[in-house]
Design a protein around this nucleic acid. Sequence first.
DNA 1: AACTGCCATATTTTCGAAAATTTCCGATTG
DNA 2: CAATCGGAAATTTTCGAAAATATGGCAGTT
Lengths: 259, 259
Amino acid sequence: MAVHRKAGRNASAAGGERGAAGESASGPATLGEAAYQRLRADIVVGAFKAGEPLRLEALRQRYGLSFSPLREALMRLQSERLVASTALRGFSVAPLSREEIEDATETRILIESEALRRSMRNGDDDWEAGIVAAFHALSLQVERQSKVAGSVATADLFAMEERHHHFHRALISHCRSPRLLELAERLYVETQRYRLPNYFGGVLGQRRRDATAEHREIMDATLGRSEEAVRLLADHYRKTAAIIEASIEWPPVSGKAAR
Amino acid sequence: MAVHRKAGRNASAAGGERGAAGESASGPATLGEAAYQRLRADIVVGAFKAGEPLRLEALRQRYGLSFSPLREALMRLQSERLVASTALRGFSVAPLSREEIEDATETRILIESEALRRSMRNGDDDWEAGIVAAFHALSLQVERQSKVAGSVATADLFAMEERHHHFHRALISHCRSPRLLELAERLYVETQRYRLPNYFGGVLGQRRRDATAEHREIMDATLGRSEEAVRLLADHYRKTAAIIEASIEWPPVSGKAAR
DNA sequence: AACTGCCATATTTTCGAAAATTTCCGATTG
DNA sequence: CAATCGGAAATTTTCGAAAATATGGCAGTT
């Protein structure tokens, strides 16, 4: 007995190397992959609070999965610094702290600065077109949301986030280093944890900050192959970090983090 | 029935956060951790050839473990780029290539350059003492091995490797960035795969390269808080990469990598 | 009250088998 | 002969239970 999967499941012939963007239709190929994606999303949006223990039984019920795929996913998330764990005492959501956001921000700047420089050296017409297109799509979404009076739909916030991500990826896309691209990707997700609560939570209407102008400046300098682009990008990230650090009431440093 | 572990196993009360150095006595706390360490060691020393499929049944027999801890370990190794995998087609040893060693080397230089600069800014007396001590220990080992006539014992090669690693870690140890340290660590292991075969395999007696002199120069410039240290370190890594690239007969580019 | 040892319970970790999927091979067809 | 189809075998992935370990409370002692 014990039917493992409800139906024969989506017959994705392709499969796809992990780490690739795609998947598109038909969903994740394995339950482990699905667990990874859902868990990561839930951590990033704050569905689990920082530092909160992640008990396997609870996760099993929440996602309707068995231990094996969950453990795999948690293992993977741990190596991406979204989850912490101690030997025989289980997993917990990685804590948030000033030190962490600063380290993540500065590391991200180090990685993306280099990636941006290389992209500017290697970038061709397609690269430029990709950046312009991504910027435009992002602007449209910003425009649309600024028109809305009250609260913005969650779906729109996700669309916004997606386009923002896409824009920043376009800038460095032609650096020709798999490692730099992967690191930038991970650091984007790590910092997302810090940005999103601030973003969903509150200051939506009164956008004190003109992020679009910053993005445009970065784009212009980048297309002009100017080293200034690197400085602007770094400033952009540092400003974001500063705003977040100011807006969060950091929990008092406690000795016992996990569990 | 089905006794899980032979005996009650070593009762390591401590446990220890993963990623920490220690463990010292009493071995890994969990079988998953043990699998990770053994598998990683076997991949790095080339016990499994690059590109070779890692079949679970074979691993199960080799290490006397069940699937779960093995999969966990493989998952972890994949996120460290030592293992590749495709959705439902299993794992394989990550391939070696010119592109990879170049990317790894340049990324390592990017990371360690920044880490070294910060260490030079932050470093105190203990930091300096640590570097001097590590250099000295490394020199002693080099000295000892150069005296030996014929082939050197494997244990000595490992001791050498360990002290070399320790020296490079000492240089950047005070950068105050957990991420940079972790990345440097991972890149060290990644590049180890390329260095070791060359190291074990052949040119032991006729050390054409005076690595000790290079190390001393790096140390001196570092202790003198000179930016020159960064340049020397980068040269050191690029030279190593160049030697390796020259000494390896690269396999012809084939389309099908895994399995 | 503080400390210690012990037991019951909660939780993680590991196992071995079942299920799902891919791979391989031969027969069949165009 | 190339291509395709089917089905057996090989392999990965998932499950659910068993084992190992940690946790928390309670009694007994100092």
